[in-house]
Design a protein around this nucleic acid. Structure first.
Lengths: 192, 192
DNA sequence: CTTGCAGTAAACCGATCTGTCTAGTTCACT
DNA sequence: AGTGAACTAGACAGATCGGTTTACTGCAAG
């Protein structure tokens, strides 16, 4: 079920599901609505994905992949120093939030709904969070942080905080706030 | 429908609802289950609260109230300086998370599920976030922050970030991490 | 030419959803 | 003694839930 091996019907279903799941919540969206919105019958949906659970997991997996590819590409494209690359993750986050995350982090939202520990979506959520922390740790290491793991914890916390505040639109520009705190964190960590 | 004016049946319903809504998600919990868990009939539930929407709002309202009272009491009881009171909010958050927030912020989780703008719970969520920011702003002011509003944005972001990470249990002690970042933010703000 | 995959159309399943209703009981207050 | 509030018990309604099934069409590859 890799991305390329998706039938046209499957593609339409996943696109419709992504929009509906993120916009209205996972439990609030039924498979009938997804199929209708995708212009596809329910049979096609079950032929392609097998269950709603699996469709949810596929939705999260694809969103995770898109975010990773987009962020790493944007950070690499900047061409700045290692120090600058860490800060670029916050600029990237801000842009992503504006464009794709009006309702906050899709994974945090999903975690709020997928309470059963057996749900296949839970593994995807954990993966997503673990990846970001690992990525930030790498960048922190390259920037010469004295304690890369500790710095990664701080940076991850800033990322999550910004995303939540952006979703609740309680603050003006949370990504910029997070970025300015990241500067302090990096200075303390001895980054250059 | 103030807290004290709640009938015994209403009390049991609200207690059961709070446990179920927070633990399993709002949309995943039906009124039948709430009534059964409360040892009460559905009629009582509808006589007391009128609708599930209203019950959800009441649940959020009460949780908000409990959090506010607990935090302010804890911060005041410390008896420290204004500077110390700001940091005490993070100690309080850490304790609260350990005791009451294993699944993250109830309001962020609720916001993920209550996507309809007309839902009465949305106003409670906004209130909750606005209150925390205002409280942090007051404390920052007392601590002599050059830009109390800006500092409040930073502190609120740290609070939310810690809560989210705590709910996903991706980091060891997110409240302590947030607290250490808060120190940096306060130093920059010129707090004494 | 045929096999098999991707798809449509639509009926069907049992369970559960929010919400309503009737009928009757307990109990405190006046 | 009488009233009204709070409650139990349980049937009922219409909609929707996730999921299955049967029958049929279009089409590309061997």
């Amino acid at each position: 079920m890799a991305n390329g091996t998706l039938t046209p019907g499957g593609r339409k279903i996943l696109d419709a599901a992504a929009l509906l799941f993120y916009g209205r919540g996972i439990n609030a969206v039924g498979v009938d609505l997804i199929a209708r919105q995708a212009g596809v019958t329910k049979k096609t949906l079950y032929d392609r994905f097998g269950s709603k659970e699996a469709l949810v997991a596929a939705y999260l997996r694809e969103r995770d992949q898109r975010w990773r590819e987009w962020l790493t590409a944007r950070v690499s494209a900047g061409g700045g120093s290692a120090y600058g690359r860490v800060l670029a993750t916050f600029d990237g986050l801000g842009e992503w939030m504006r464009r794709e995350n009006p309702r906050g982090c899709a994974f945090v939202n999903a975690a709020a709904e997928l309470t059963g520990p057996a749900h296949p979506g839970r593994a995807v959520i954990e993966d997503q969070k673990r990846w970001l922390r690992g990525y930030l740790r790498e960048l922190g290491e390259e920037a010469g942080a004295a304690d890369p793991a500790g710095l990664a914890d701080e940076l991850a916390l800033l990322h999550e905080g910004a995303t939540v505040l952006g979703g609740l639109s309680v603050t003006e520009n949370p990504a910029a706030t997070a970025r300015s705190l990241a500067v302090l964190a990096m200075e303390r960590a001895g980054c250059t």
